[in-house]
């Protein structure tokens, strides 16, 4: 095995970006699995893509326009029905601003 493609610190950093709390054992396993997958994916490097445009979408799409007409939205009660916690007309979340 050559230099691992993704370090333990990388895994921790990416987990923070992805909002995933990983336990210590999960972190170790994740690093090893990601390295295996990335080693396979590395075969892409050998493809000559000079001058090739990237494809983000299989079927070419241009902007799809419609008339800007107001329509009824879903009822508020329906939208809040699945919320883990609601207060009045709002989703309730833990504190987001420092005291």
């Amino acid at each position: 095995m050559t230099e691992p493609r993704i370090s333990r610190e990388d895994v921790q950093h990416v987990a923070r970006l992805a909002r995933l709390e990983l336990a210590a054992t999960e972190l170790v396993r994740m690093q090893s699995e990601l390295n295996n997958i990335l080693a396979y994916i590395d075969k892409l490097r050998s493809v000559d893509t000079a001058g090739v445009e990237p494809t983000s979408h299989a079927v070419p799409l241009t902007n799809v326009m419609r008339e800007d007409e107001p329509r009824p939205s879903f009822p508020l009660a329906d939208m809040l029905a699945n919320a883990p916690e609601a207060a009045g007309d709002f989703f309730r979340v833990p504190r987001i601003i420092e005291e």
Binding site: I41, L44, R45, V47, T49, V52, E53, P54, T55, S56, A58
Partner: peptide
Amino acid sequence: DAYYGQAQRVRTLVA
């Protein structure tokens, strides 16, 4: 670019 960009260019070649 090395990963996602390259994958999208390879997608073009597959198509």
